Amino acid sequence: MAYRNKTYVCFDADIDMNYYRTLQMWKQNSKIDFSFSNAHEINKLMPYSSEETIKRKLRERMLNTKLLIVLIGEKTRNLYKYVRWEIELALKLDIPIIAVNLNKKNRIDMDRCPPILRDKPVVHIPFTQSAIVHAFKEWPIQYPNYKDKVDLYSEMFD
């Protein structure tokens, strides 16, 4: 198995790309204490690849991942082709997951959260720089203590 040191960001690329770009911008800004090794830099996807090829490459990325970030937007709960598949794979690989609410709710958003995450050990945080920086640093460390429990995760980050 590959060394897991990457952060994988899962999101609705059609609608929520600007939030992903914001994470990249924070990473590049030397005045912001925010750093992660982006799994999306492992291999490049061709725009017109087959679903099978895309999922194979995404799986390669996920095998190098230590943390999954799910950007929860307005339509995320209904995305099955890739987003749900990525979440299922992360759960199978026992990768800690941070659900980042783009509407800035500091708890699970039942209207937007994919159902697959509702009863899993996932921390739900708002899309704010301070919450994300804190969760990036703390959740991978804390996850082993909480991975068999639910309903406690947002409180850790209040």
Rank of each mutant, 00 (worst) to 15 (best):
Y48R: 06
R84G: 00
I108A: 08
N64S: 12
P144T: 04
I132A: 02
P114S: 03
L117K: 04
L58A: 11
S154Y: 09
Y48H: 10
M62N: 01
K6D: 02
S154M: 04
M25P: 00
D119C: 07
Y82T: 12
I72E: 03
A13M: 12
F127G: 07
W85K: 05
D109S: 07
I32M: 07
M25V: 00
L91D: 00
K57T: 08
Y82H: 08
Q28G: 15
Y20V: 11
V100Q: 08
Y19S: 12
Y19L: 05
N29T: 12
I141S: 13
V150L: 10
W139Q: 05
K75G: 09
E155R: 12
Q24N: 10
K120Q: 15
V123P: 08
K31Y: 08
E138M: 15
C113F: 01
N43I: 11
I97E: 01
M156H: 07
R21L: 13
F36Q: 01
K81Y: 04
S154C: 10
P144A: 06
S37Q: 10
R107N: 14
L68M: 14
I132H: 02
Y80D: 15
H40K: 11
H40G: 10
D111Y: 05
Q24F: 02
Q129R: 15
I125E: 06
D12Y: 06
K66A: 03
T53Y: 10
I54C: 07
E60K: 08
P114F: 02
V150R: 13
Y146F: 15
Q129E: 15
K55N: 08
I54V: 15
A99S: 11
Y143D: 02
D151K: 07
S50E: 01
M62W: 01
R61M: 14
I108C: 11
H134D: 15
T7W: 09
F34A: 05
L152Y: 10
I97A: 01
S50I: 00
V133A: 11
Y48M: 05
K104C: 09
